[in-house]
Amino acid sequence: MHTVHAVMAVKHIGRAKSRLAGELSPAQRSQLVLAMFTDTVAAATAVPALASLTVVTPDPLVADRARALGARVLDEPPAGHDPLNTALAAGAAAVRERHGPTHLLALQADLPALRPTELADVLTVAPIAARSLVIDHTGTGTAALILRDPTAELAPRFGPDSARAHRADGAVALAGRWPGLRCDVDTPEDLETVRLLGVGAHTTATLRDLGFSSLGSDPVRTVC
């Protein structure tokens, strides 16, 4: 199987997860975002088919954590009206500048229940010479965008209703029961869902510190 190079984009963590404001203070949200990012990176980099991970971010805490986890870091480029997709496209371009023609993966950075086996399975079934996606648990978002064409552009379309945007651009939706991969965290309900699935060690410890009861790191395979 061809190896894949992954990119993630993470904004300033102090501005993230505003829909959790009713549950957590800004400092607590920052702590949680960093923990979820750490667990996502740890799970992703445990996949043998993943050759490298590049994180595009303006946040020094995220950058330091990414480097500590073995990822390459790229400063966020000027973005205009679309910072997330601009960052992902820049990350993809940097990967190919460094490694030449490669297969690519754009992955959300807030998947604390992700299991390496899930991502490994996705990379196995993603069709060659095509762009594919994993739709998130809401049915409208994109958890992962996979490009199994070493020269085509990544063409990320993340944002509201991104699943439809990616499919309209030719991406094929992958079918599979990957609950940890499909569950990003934006709302208190999402947070409860990933807790039931079983989150990684850093998110588990952070939730405990924040006063949430921990269910441990072993997954409970409920439908997400």
Results as ranks from 00 to 15, higher is better:
Ala16Arg: 13
His2Trp: 11
Asp75Gln: 14
Ala87Trp: 07
Leu24Gln: 07
Ala21Val: 07
Cys224Met: 14
Ser52Cys: 09
Ile13Gly: 04
Leu69Gly: 08
Leu181His: 02
Ala27Cys: 08
Val62His: 08
Val7His: 00
Thr57Asn: 07
Ala201Arg: 15
Asn85Thr: 01
Ala87Phe: 02
Glu118Met: 02
Leu154Asp: 06
Thr40Val: 02
Pro219Asp: 12
Arg115Val: 00
Val194Arg: 02
Leu154Gln: 06
Gly141Lys: 01
Ala49Tyr: 01
Ala51Gly: 15
Arg167Glu: 13
Leu215Ile: 09
Ala130Tyr: 06
Pro78Cys: 06
Ala90Trp: 10
Arg221Met: 12
Ala106Met: 04
His99Pro: 06
Arg157Pro: 03
Leu107Thr: 02
His202Phe: 11
Ala35Asn: 05
Ser214Arg: 08
Ala130Arg: 11
Ala51Asn: 06
Ile128Lys: 11
Gly139Tyr: 09
Ala175Leu: 14
Gln31Phe: 09
Val185Gln: 09
Pro26Lys: 04
Ala168Thr: 13
Ala113Glu: 04
Leu69His: 04
Asp190Glu: 03
Leu197Met: 08
Ala35Thr: 04
Pro78Gly: 10
Asp59Asn: 08
Glu192Trp: 11
Arg148Leu: 03
Pro78Phe: 12
Gly91Val: 11
Leu210Arg: 08
Arg98Asp: 14
Ser30Lys: 09
Arg19Asp: 13
Arg131Asp: 03
Val41Ile: 03
Ala90Pro: 11
Leu196Lys: 13
Thr151Ser: 15
Ala42Gln: 13
Glu189Asn: 11
Val62Trp: 02
Leu111Ala: 07
Met1Thr: 12
Arg65His: 04
Pro150Val: 10
Arg221Tyr: 15
Ala165Trp: 12
Val73Ile: 04
Thr117Phe: 02
Leu197Ile: 09
Thr117Ile: 09
Leu53Ser: 05
Asp64Pro: 10
Thr140Ser: 15
Thr86Phe: 06
Pro112Lys: 03
Leu105Pro: 03
Arg96Asn: 00
Pro219Ala: 12
Asp209Gly: 11
Arg177Trp: 12
Thr203Ser: 09
Ala152His: 10
Ser52His: 05
Val73Phe: 05
Val10Arg: 04
Val10Lys: 06
